[in-house]
């Protein structure tokens, strides 16, 4: 059940967008496709929706082979980055579109549309045109429109990518809560690792047309399978030839077991956090992330000597 993708390949001219991709998306879960732009995640999503044809491979939705089905027969809800609002139709008619196409009775359509508008907090905007809504409101309308036809899966292509940071954060929390209420199998594409870590049950990291790793947010953060996943999911730095998180480094003002000697090169305060650039003999530069309190307790200033070692049992990969 859910979505099953096997051996999907797609090229655009000489560019390999997807290279023999296999993926299984659990039914009812909220899954993020995470990766840098041009990595193939949107293409994969569009292939699942039928908006793009794969060169090879198969797509199964809810146990049914959908590889050759037209988008309109796939029972998927799709939400576009730039909303794809029907500009000439009111918010009500936008949400009602799929139901009108299915020729449902008028009073049923009315009931269902108002139910959905309530769910996305747009009930008082039913008669507005999309142009009279803000970006965030438009995207919520698009979501209600996609949910109206009760799709088997909901696919969102960088749904919050066109919104400003504050609205993006709000909508992200709201999507999580919505999913907890509606429980439809949901896949969303994002290049924002924070968004993926915060919202999803499972993250699929995609890069250069291949899947790098699949796992829960904690798994991926704590046990990254390779350097790409580790560096894409959070900040990294090198210490004694190992890739570590800057917040996983202990700093001592006196020599300690297994600690390497370094010199504080630069201190930068960013709000509550202090970023220290350290120079050891072996690494190009090691960035250490401390709280303001830690930095003050150690009495760090530029030019002093310190000893560094990774926090025991912290995540690290040999470079």
């Amino acid at each position: 059940m859910g979505i099953e993708v096997r051996g999907i390949a797609k090229r655009f001219g000489d560019f390999v967008a997807l290279d023999d991709v296999d993926l299984r998306v659990q039914s009812g879960a909220l899954t993020a496709l995470l990766g840098p732009s041009g990595g193939g995640k949107s293409t994969l999503l569009r292939i699942v929706a039928g908006l793009e044809k794969p060169d090879a491979g198969s797509v199964e939705i809810d146990g049914q082979d959908a590889t050759r089905l037209a988008p309109r027969h796939r029972d998927v809800g799709f939400v576009f980055q730039h909303y794809a609002a029907f500009t000439h139709l009111s918010v009500f008619r936008n949400v009602a579109f799929g139901l009108e196409i299915r020729k449902r009775p008028k009073d049923e359509i009315r009931r269902r549309v108002y139910e959905l508008l309530e769910l996305v907090h747009l009930e008082q905007f039913a008669d507005r045109l999309p142009a009279e809504l803000s970006g965030g409101q438009r995207q919520r309308m698009a979501l209600a429109r996609a949910l109206a036809v009760e799709p088997k899966v909901l696919l969102l292509d960088e749904p919050f990518g066109a919104l400003d940071a504050k609205v993006r954060k709000e909508l992200r929390d709201w999507l999580r809560r919505l999913h907890d209420e509606v429980h439809v199998t949901t896949v969303f594409v994002t290049h924002d690792q924070e968004e993926a870590l915060e919202v999803s049950d499972e993250i699929v990291v995609i890069n250069n047309g291949r899947i790098e790793q699949v796992g829960s947010p904690d798994d991926l953060y704590d046990k990254p399978g390779n350097q790409f996943v580790m560096s894409f999911l959070g900040p990294v730095t090198t210490l004694s030839g190992r890739l570590v998180r800057p917040h996983d480094i202990e700093v001592f003002t006196v020599p300690a077991d297994d600690a390497v000697r370094a010199q504080v090169n630069r201190l930068q305060r960013v709000g509550f956090e202090v970023r220290a650039e350290m120079v050891t003999g072996t690494d190009a530069a090691t960035t250490v992330q401390l709280t303001r309190g830690q930095s003050e307790a150690l009495n760090l200033t530029e030019g002093v000597a310190v000893w560094l070692r990774p926090v025991p049992n912290s995540t690290g990969l040999t470079v």
């Binding site: 908006l51 309109r72 799709f78 576009f80 730039h82 794809a84 000439h88 196409i101």
Partner: peptide
């Protein structure tokens, strides 16, 4: 193409998309 593709994913066939989306646009 976004509006046309959105209509397709909502179940509209080519004729319905032309009449309901393209023509009004």
């Amino acid at each position: 193409l976004d509006q046309d593709q959105a209509a397709a994913s909502l179940g509209a066939n080519a004729f319905a998309r032309f009449v309901r989306i393209t023509l009004p646009t």
